[in-house]
Computed example of a mutant assay.
Amino acid sequence: MLKRIHHAAIICSDYEASKRFYTECLGLRILAENYRQERNSYKLDLALPDGTQVELFSFPGAPERPSYPEARGLRHLAFEVDDVDECKKKLESMGIAVEAIRLDDYTNKRFVFFADPDGLPLELYEQRVQNAGC
């Protein structure tokens, strides 16, 4: 029986830039960092506060991911936040381009898209709780 998503794996083109983005900009906590010499590759295990993990990989020569127009496969990775406005302002203050805030037609929840250093679409999805941040 499936219980929840344990992790999402991302392959990046610039390991140090992506590591900074996911840890410093998004605030994910480093669980483990390993260099695999036989693959000339890093594997960085990151965690969100609820224990959900993101695995960040570097593979030399990995092909670019087709994104636009929308390609088959994973469309985007969404993170739950308490306040989309606050998080959007914080990302923009770090020089990260963020799209306009939208409203989900079905749930009436607010969300916004931005991208990681490789253009992977990321979403902030609001679950508003009073006096809480991102």
Rank of each mutant, 00 (worst) to 15 (best):
V54S: 02
L120F: 09
A97D: 08
F21K: 00
H6N: 13
Q53N: 05
A97R: 14
K19S: 00
H76Y: 11
I96M: 08
F59E: 06
M1V: 15
A97M: 10
F79Q: 11
L44W: 06
A132Q: 15
F113C: 05
C12W: 10
S13N: 12
I5F: 15
P66E: 12
F113I: 09
D83T: 12
E99N: 14
V84S: 13
E33F: 01
A97K: 14
N34F: 06
E38F: 15
R29P: 00
G133D: 12
L91P: 07
T52H: 05
A97S: 11
M94A: 00
R36N: 08
D105S: 14
A47M: 00
A8K: 02
K89S: 06
L124D: 03
K43G: 10
E38P: 04
F114M: 06
L46V: 04
V84I: 09
L122S: 03
L46D: 05
N108Q: 12
F111A: 09
A115I: 02
S58C: 05
R102H: 09
F113A: 09
R39N: 08
V112K: 01
D104R: 13
L77G: 03
S58V: 08
P49I: 04
R102Q: 13
R110E: 09
Q37F: 03
L31P: 01
V129M: 06
F79E: 06
L31T: 03
Y35C: 05
R39H: 03
L44I: 03
N108E: 11
S18A: 12
P66V: 14
T52D: 11
L48E: 04
S41M: 10
E64I: 11
A17K: 13
I101P: 12
F114V: 10
A78F: 14
E86L: 15
A17M: 07
E123L: 09
V98F: 13
R110H: 15
N40M: 06
R72C: 01
A115E: 13
D118A: 10
I101H: 08
G95Y: 11
E38Y: 15
A9V: 11
D14V: 06
A47V: 03
S13M: 06
L124N: 11
D104H: 07
A9R: 13
A8N: 08
R75Q: 10
K109F: 05
L46Y: 11
I10Q: 06
E24S: 06
G95E: 02
A32P: 01
F59C: 02
G27E: 03
R39D: 05
R128I: 07
R72L: 14
V84T: 08
G51P: 06
T23H: 00
D45Q: 04
H7F: 14
G95N: 01
A8I: 15
F111L: 15
E92S: 05
F57K: 02
K89C: 04
M1D: 13
L103W: 14
G119T: 09
N34L: 04
A17N: 03
M94T: 00
L2E: 05
K19H: 03
V98N: 03
L48N: 00
G119I: 10
